[in-house]
């Protein structure tokens, strides 16, 4: 076993790969920040803080929380659109987020392998310069699909305040009857926040785990953009 592996040692196997270009990295951290701000302010919209004293004219607490939520939502949504644009002009890794290659048998084989790997059924560790198939599907579900759901429900609710005929109402107003009314739309939007929290917990865990015990860099990659490897095996 050891001899077989030794024959595969080669310096090119350890060559770093530039995976996340600057716009992708900037998007990642802007996205992270906007989710944090949206989740915090959104939770306080669902469960407002204890009442402030004095006259209503002296305060604008809810109004400001909602304002921050809306600004942060715009950052989220515009970031999403810019990120989508970058999938067209960026490197090959920039498309992984939007288009998991589900029609390739190798991708499904990779997914099966990742499943076994994370269930401790295999010790074999593969190198993946971009996202592995399991990460791709998670990214697609939670960042593309859930991202669109949050943008759709969010702007539909925002359009309620802007009024009938506003741009948000014309583009996203159909979402409200689709979810069965404004109250349901709000609750699904709140549910989306929880799903993003679930994603964040698992995402951060996996990134740190991969960095510590994996064969390749992970946390530093989303900071510097470079995927480096700890060994020179294939």
């Amino acid at each position: 076993m050891a001899t077989v592996m030794e024959t595969k040692h080669a310096p090119e196997n350890q060559a770093a790969v530039y995976v996340f270009e600057a716009p992708v990295r900037i998007w990642h951290w802007t996205h992270t920040f906007s989710i944090l701000v949206c989740a915090a302010t959104g939770y306080l919209i669902a469960y407002p803080l204890p009442s402030v004293g004095g006259e209503a004219s002296q305060h604008f607490l809810m109004g400001n929380l909602r304002l921050i939520h809306f600004i942060s939502s715009y950052v989220f949504a515009i970031g999403f659109v810019v990120r989508l644009y970058w999938a067209f002009v960026g490197n090959r890794f920039s498309r992984e987020l939007f288009l998991p290659p589900i029609f390739k048998a190798a991708w499904w084989e990779g997914l099966w392998y990742e499943l076994r790997f994370y269930l401790f059924l295999t010790r074999e560790q593969r190198k993946t310069p971009g996202h592995n198939p399991m990460a791709q599907i998670a990214m697609w579900l939670f960042n593309v699909l859930l991202g669109l759901v949050m943008i759709g429900t969010g702007f539909a609710l925002y359009g309620e305040g802007l009024g009938l005929g506003s741009w948000a109402d014309r583009l996203f107003g159909w979402v409200i009857p689709f979810f069965g009314g404004a109250q349901n739309t709000r609750m699904w939007h709140l549910m989306g926040m929880w799903l993003l929290i679930v994603f964040a917990i698992i995402h951060v865990y996996m990134a740190i785990r991969a960095d510590i015990i994996g064969r390749q860099s992970s946390v530093s990659t989303i900071i510097s953009g470079w995927r480096t490897y700890k060994d020179d095996l294939p």
Partner: peptide, 26 residues
């Protein structure tokens, strides 16, 4: 202000209860 939305059929569940369970499980 936060209400059930009947995702789980007859089981009464609001977004926070489901969400907190999911986040806790995660």
């Amino acid at each position: 202000a936060v209400t059930d939305f009947g995702v789980l059929g007859d089981v009464e569940a609001d977004a926070d209860r489901v969400g907190a369970i999911l986040a806790g499980a995660a």
